[in-house]
């Protein structure tokens, strides 16, 4: 069985797949890759099913040695990947030999990169998923982030991996497009006029109080009618934008709590959520409201393109 050796894990590297659904009624967060789109691409390039478990590396890459020949792919943030000190391309299949070492020189754009390995990562399946949920020490590598010295087993490869490249049109540009599309949330009507105007017309800055649970934003406070920010605790979905008493919005992400007691003013659409995962503290973003129908259209279009070019 193939193994990889983690020589250094970087700032935060965890094992993630498409997440752990089916237990939200018990308060179990879904977790999984923050940027599911990049996870899908990396897996398809490495010859895996879209949702195989891979490494999600945050802000810095990890250093990985290979114990046998195989194939990998890197998609998402650009951390300057190299194999045996020679730069390698992201967004295409990379063939590795026994003894090769994958390194990253430093962050160039984005926030999270996904390293998929042919065969997928074979940590135990916990409650239907290999995803790591750090707060409850569940899943992944013993419920924790990767550390130097970890030896990770990969799954069997059933067929020979073919060289594949992601077409340019499918590669996101993290530096230019900073407008994120939202649809109105369950409590959107609780915003007063200036609150709604601030939310949809001014810039918000990603603060350093942002993690896998959510991104806290700073900017013009959003006023709600009668300054009421509380609701009876209720369900939260991926990309829900909560408005706590400060009037500063929070975008809820992969490790979000299943329920919350703040106004749910909007939701980032599924097609844009993966780019939210690539934001860093200091990045400035804007929101644009679209319809639910349009959101579904955009998501289906992207799925169609992935299937057309990569499956």
């Amino acid at each position: 069985m193939s193994k990889i050796i983690i020589r250094s894990a970087g700032f935060l590297s965890t094992v993630q797949d498409c997440g752990r659904t089916g237990f939200q009624r018990f308060g179990m967060p879904v977790s999984g890759a923050m940027d599911v789109y990049s996870l899908h691409l990396a897996n398809l390039l490495a010859g895996n099913p879209k949702c195989a478990a891979a490494i999600e590396a945050t802000l810095t890459g990890s250093e990985i040695a290979f114990s046998s020949d195989g194939a990998i792919a890197i998609c998402g943030a650009d951390f300057g990947a190299s194999l045996n000190e020679k730069p390698v391309n992201m967004y295409e299949t990379i063939f590795v030999k026994k003894g090769d070492v994958l390194k990253f020189s430093g962050l160039r754009n984005g926030c999270r990169t996904y390293i998929a390995f042919a065969g997928g990562i074979e940590v135990p399946v916990v409650m239907g998923s290999r995803s790591t949920y750090l707060r409850a020490k569940t899943g992944g590598m013993d419920g924790r982030a990767l550390v130097a010295g970890d030896i990770i087993t990969l799954g069997e490869i059933s067929t020979k991996v073919q060289l594949k490249k992601v077409p340019k049109a499918l590669i996101p540009d993290y530096s230019t497009d900073m407008t994120f599309r939202v649809i109105a949330g369950p409590e959107a009507k609780s915003l007063d006029f200036t609150g709604l105007r601030n939310f949809l017309t001014t810039e918000y800055r990603v603060t350093d109080q942002s993690d896998r649970m959510g991104l806290r934003l700073d900017g013009l406070p959003i006023k709600s009618i009668n300054d009421n920010h509380d609701i009876i605790s209720a369900g939260i979905s991926p990309g829900t934008i909560q408005l706590p008493g400060s009037g500063l919005p929070i975008i809820l992400m992969a490790d979000r709590q299943t329920t919350g007691g703040y106004l749910r003013i909007a939701n980032v659409i599924s097609a844009d959520l993966d780019r939210i995962a690539q934001l860093k503290p200091g990045d400035k973003i804007k929101f644009l409201e679209i319809s639910l129908e349009k959101a579904h259209e955009l998501f289906a279009e992207r799925d169609f393109l992935i299937n057309k070019f990569l499956i």
């Binding site: 659904t21 089916g22 237990f23 939200q24 009624r25 879904v30 009876i232 605790s233 209720a234 369900g235 939260i236 979905s237 299943t258 329920t259």
Partner: peptide
Amino acid sequence: IDFIPSYNELM
């Protein structure tokens, strides 16, 4: 794919 029941809502 999943359900989130709460006090007065079912998601």
